[in-house]
Design a binder for these strands. Structure first.
Lengths: 167, 167
DNA sequence: CTGCTACTTGAAGTCGACTTCAAGTCAAGC
DNA sequence: GCTTGACTTGAAGTCGACTTCAAGTAGCAG
């Protein structure tokens, strides 16, 4: 693997891996069941992990951060080489797709934030103008009022008469 | 509630509320069981909702967006007045705390993004420098190498000998 | 009144990501 | 060689947020 391959002292027990990864041992067994990580066994059937496993785990945790399920993480992980470092191009593809996921998530949060700011200003007193209200009334909010939808789905329909924000 | 109070035509059936809120009727019943929304009943025991319910739902969905559970959303919702519009100050408190939650979430995504960018550059070839690796090795990454942790938890411990990113 | 769809209920099921449990085995220090 | 703590297994449990189901009732058009 590296200069002289993994010696016996490069192998981690599940407890050590749990400590270093911050995951519970039970979670590591679960990851193994899903095929996200692999272990060799001692003669007594106990798991031993190489250090590379830490990087696989890091990859999986980062994947979760960008909104992937463990199954999706496995797909991405399976496309990277198992026993050597990924090439720049290999890594690039993964990283790029994650970047855009992250950007989307940030953009969505920014939109929500803008809506919230608007609501502070309006005090949610106006039914036709409150963006939080309009966000919920997917089918209802149309007509002349402003429509700032929280969701991506477009909406059409009749606009009801005014009311106040009743908690 | 507004000019002449809610007339019979201001009352929505659960199906209408489902259509307009984008939630399934089953979800609305679930929300009611949790005390997030309330309904009056017809003589035949069917639910009827006022328009204000749409705003309560909007509030809940927005709360979910900023990472609150439904129970937490209920707490926030219960602090807003039930039958009148919230004052600027009342709304302000809620909105402000959500703003900071959103800002935190954005900041965290930005950090992850920066890490990913760094990894594209390094190709994950260096164990001591790869931030994704160090992110997982919470207890292990110390010594002279750079440590960019993905998580908030600080970490200390010995730094092992080099290796490459084995998928 | 008929027929139809929308509605009612409580209980049970689902999904993802794990955790907990029970009963037994391994590894290592003294 | 004994003790202690870390490890093994499969099965079942948990949690949040709902959905699905079955069997029955309401509301309304014609």
């Amino acid at each position: 693997m590296s200069v002289h391959g993994p010696s016996r002292h490069d192998l981690l027990t599940i407890g050590q891996l749990a400590d270093r990864s911050g995951l519970a041992a039970s979670a590591l067994r679960y990851y193994e069941k899903l095929g996200l990580i692999h272990a060799t066994r001692t003669t007594g059937n106990q798991r031993r992990y190489t250090r590379g496993t830490l990087r696989r785990i890091a990859f999986v945790r980062a994947a979760q951060r960008v909104g992937l399920s463990l199954d999706e993480a496995k797909v991405a992980l399976d496309r990277l080489p198992e026993h050597r470092a990924p090439s720049g191009a290999e890594w690039d593809g993964v990283a790029q797709s994650w970047q855009s996921r992250i950007d989307e998530q940030i953009a969505e949060l920014e939109r929500l934030k803008a809506k919230l700011t608007g609501c502070i200003g309006c005090g949610c007193l106006s039914l036709t103008r409150c963006s939080l209200y309009n966000a919920a009334d997917r089918a209802g909010a149309a007509g002349p009022g402003a429509r700032y939808l929280l969701t991506r789905d477009p909406a059409t329909g009749p606009e009801p008469s005014g009311a106040t924000f009743t908690g």
